[in-house]
Nucleic acid binder design. Sequence first.
DNA 1: TCAAAAGTGTTGACTCTACACCCATGT
DNA 2: ACATGGGTGTAGAGTCAACACTTTTGA
Lengths: 227, 227
Amino acid sequence: MPHQDVSVTVDLVVLTVRDDDLAVLLVRRGIPPYRGRLALPGGFVHAQEDLPAAAGRELEEETGIRGLGGHLEQLATFGTPGRDPRGRVVTVAYLALVPDPGPLVAGSDAASASWNSVGELETGGRRLAFDHSQILTAGLERARAKLEYSTLATSFCPPEFTINELRRVYEAVWGQPLDPRNFHRKVTGTPGFVEATGTTTGRQGGRPAQLFRPGGATALHPAMLRP
Amino acid sequence: MPHQDVSVTVDLVVLTVRDDDLAVLLVRRGIPPYRGRLALPGGFVHAQEDLPAAAGRELEEETGIRGLGGHLEQLATFGTPGRDPRGRVVTVAYLALVPDPGPLVAGSDAASASWNSVGELETGGRRLAFDHSQILTAGLERARAKLEYSTLATSFCPPEFTINELRRVYEAVWGQPLDPRNFHRKVTGTPGFVEATGTTTGRQGGRPAQLFRPGGATALHPAMLRP
DNA sequence: TCAAAAGTGTTGACTCTACACCCATGT
DNA sequence: ACATGGGTGTAGAGTCAACACTTTTGA
């Protein structure tokens, strides 16, 4: 047979919005190769484990969160020979969009995991370990595109949220301001995007905002247009 | 290490439009498992071979065509344990959109390759070998979605084509008729979608149509809307 | 002259943008 | 009262669907 066995890993692009800023979860490598460099979290797929299960397991190990309004989807597969100096390693990258989980659990693997501003990474031109910069770029592109034609932005929000919080998600991911008035009309006018809870939040010195849950719809027709 | 070595293959969803009908390239399996069943073409990734290179090689082996206006992109990766009864096999599926290449070369691997109407497969509920029905469904979804917001429909056409041929591509992929007048305006009015060659074709008993080449644009803004 | 296919004009419905404006609460 | 943020009304530009209409060829 003209082939050889290879190792298969999953790598995760975990995105969240913290303080109106898009952030990605990165780990600092403690062992060679690329020792001391930042990398995407990930690991080997177990013997009898499905790919989505492996991605979910890694996500839980790194962040402690488990499906609480978050979203996980396959991104792309990278297998260029030489991408890992230790041998032929094919990695299936997954994209996760999660609400801000607060302080990260100081678990075994997650000891070195931290949130990093995507804006700073992109302007600073910082190189990640392996081909992880390329994977991160693919994840950001996918996330930015999907907010246009899906309701996935709610995956970044806690179970209940205001329209303003949802708008700040869009602004953080796209790096562009949106008109609050038109955004409100677009979201509330799209059937199934969000669902009113009936309660309000009287936080700061302003009119209390209605609280919403994610609705049943997943696609957005017509799309939310980028400015 | 909590992992095992696995085999990696590429499988191809090769689509074309023949006689105003969307068709997919399938091979009839000559050996077990699934002997005699229809399957997607594909094969093992070679030792020092990149994934896109493996997909391109398989495409050439099966169809004889080589990048002549066609398009090849990664689709998704499937690795559920047990999807191949011979062992743990992870497959990276690729999607190819190609012009009708005429009769298939009677090459070694391609001896049993043939074009199959997608419409008949979908209505007939015919099951392919392995999880290839699922992969085919993913490829069709991707192709149908991409025609909306990209200029990829030209990948189905020969180097020079008329607006009518391009419209028939859309109609075959979507399975829906489109208004010829509005389609013409949309295509010729989008900068970079198509580029006039200056020549015309005087085939049948009608006014000769202008011939076009693909233009430089890849994205479509605003999108071509499905009826 | 007629059929067939290519291409243009026009109208009403819808959507988006931009911004003026009103509503509800804390201090 | 007034600042602060939540939410609604409205006019102009652009796009799309639908269809009447003109143009250019072969038989």
